[in-house]
Simulated assay, not measured.
Amino acid sequence: MILSRHISCLGYCSLYIITEKGVKDVLKKRLKNYYKKQKLMQKEPANGDSYYDYICIVDFEATCEEGNPPEFIHEIIEFPVVLLNTHTLEIEDTFQQYVKPEINPKLSEFCVGLTGITQDIVDKADTFPQVLQNVVDWMRQRELGTKYSYCMLTDGSWDMSKFLNIQCRVSRIKHPSFAKKWINIRKSYGNFYKVPRNQTKLMIMLEKLGMSYDGRPHSGLDDSKNIARIAIRMLQDGCQLRVNEKMHAGQLMTVSSSAPLEGAPAPQMPRYRN
């Protein structure tokens, strides 16, 4: 039976068609948190419980081959950043640059088809150290880590723990200090809406929140914008997004919700490895 419900109390003025139990569970959780947040808002200003002034959403695209052989070395070929203002709940700015791979400079047909990034694009791009320096400069211009508190956010663990970690080794630079801790939105979403891990992929999260993907899948910038839309909806629903993963001594670790809260440091270009 198809159940239609107009969620007017949420203020979204949308018609939601609930076709499966998972969607109903998320909507029930959202309604419960809406009323809880309404009570809190009588005591605190809107969004006053945000942990950070800004959240930087990152979703790398990297070199790949069909089947991804275990010996294949992934190199970042697109570095996007979406700057989310947690007080206005709006995307305030974006950064995007493509990156020239060094170990496997020729992209596979599979990679081009998946990401839409062509050989000509990466051939004309800067190498990773220069692009990372541009990211650092962009973040500094927005006074992140100095005037404003912020943290990084990714869709899963791989962007920071695998792709960035591998890329820094390839480029012979240390892991950037501002990217050593981040919010894994899949964990946050699963914990907040009480859904299993297999229900936390990007397309599924969007669907269960009543949204459809906007843009080209596997475009790093478009993926980042869609992840930001999920983060905005979660903040609207009363979720307190906070760091839940980190890199320590080259290993991925979970950050407990009881750990002291701290934002990312002011961005700096990491030193080169010896």
Rank of each mutant, 00 (worst) to 15 (best):
Asp223Asn: 06
Ala264Lys: 03
Ser257Phe: 11
Thr254Pro: 09
Pro267Thr: 03
Arg229Ala: 12
His218Ala: 11
Asp222Val: 06
Glu262Val: 00
Asp222Met: 10
Val255Pro: 00
Ala231Met: 07
Ala259Met: 07
Met247Arg: 07
Val255Trp: 05
Ser257Tyr: 10
Ala231Ile: 08
Arg242Tyr: 11
Arg233Leu: 08
Ile232Phe: 08
Gly238Phe: 09
Lys225Ile: 05
Gln240Asp: 11
Leu221Lys: 13
Gly250Ile: 08
Glu262Gln: 09
Asp237Tyr: 05
Asn226Tyr: 01
Gly238Val: 10
Gly263Ile: 00
Ala259Ile: 00
Leu261Ala: 07
Ala264Glu: 11
Val255Arg: 09
Ser256Trp: 08
Leu252Asn: 03
Ile232Trp: 08
Ile230Tyr: 05
Ser258Trp: 13
Ser257Ala: 09
Met234Gln: 11
Ser219Asn: 14
Val243Asp: 13
Leu235Ser: 08
Gly250Glu: 15
Pro265Gln: 03
Ala249Asp: 14
Ser258Ala: 11
Gly263Lys: 04
Glu245Gly: 00
Leu261Trp: 01
Asn244Asp: 13
His218Leu: 08
Ser224Asn: 08
Glu245Val: 04
Arg233Val: 08
Ala228Trp: 06
Thr254Val: 12
Glu245Asn: 11
Val255Asn: 05
Ala249Val: 10
Leu235Pro: 02
Leu221Ile: 15
Gly238Ser: 11
Gly250Cys: 05
Met234Ser: 04
Glu262Met: 04
Ser224Ala: 14
Gly220Thr: 03
Cys239Ala: 15
Glu245Lys: 15
Gln251Arg: 15
Gly238Lys: 13
Lys246His: 14
Pro265Cys: 09
Ala249Phe: 02
Ala228Val: 13
Asp237His: 14
Pro265His: 02
Ala266Cys: 02
His248Pro: 01
Pro267Tyr: 06
Leu241Ala: 13
Glu262Ile: 00
Pro267Asp: 04
Arg233Gln: 13
Lys225Phe: 01
Ala249Ile: 07
Gln251Leu: 07
Asn226Thr: 09
Ile227His: 03
Ser219Met: 04
Ile227Asn: 05
Ala259Val: 01
Leu261Met: 13
Ser258Tyr: 11
Gln240Leu: 09
Arg233Glu: 12
His248Ser: 13
Asp223Phe: 01
Leu221Gly: 04
Ile230Phe: 03
Asp223Trp: 01
Ser256Gln: 09
Ser219Gly: 14
Ala228Leu: 06
Gln240Arg: 15
Ser256Lys: 12
Leu252Met: 08
Ala228Ile: 11
Pro260Cys: 00
Ile227Trp: 00
Ala266Tyr: 14
Ala264Ser: 14
Met234Val: 05
Gly220Lys: 12
Ser258Phe: 12
Met247Ser: 06
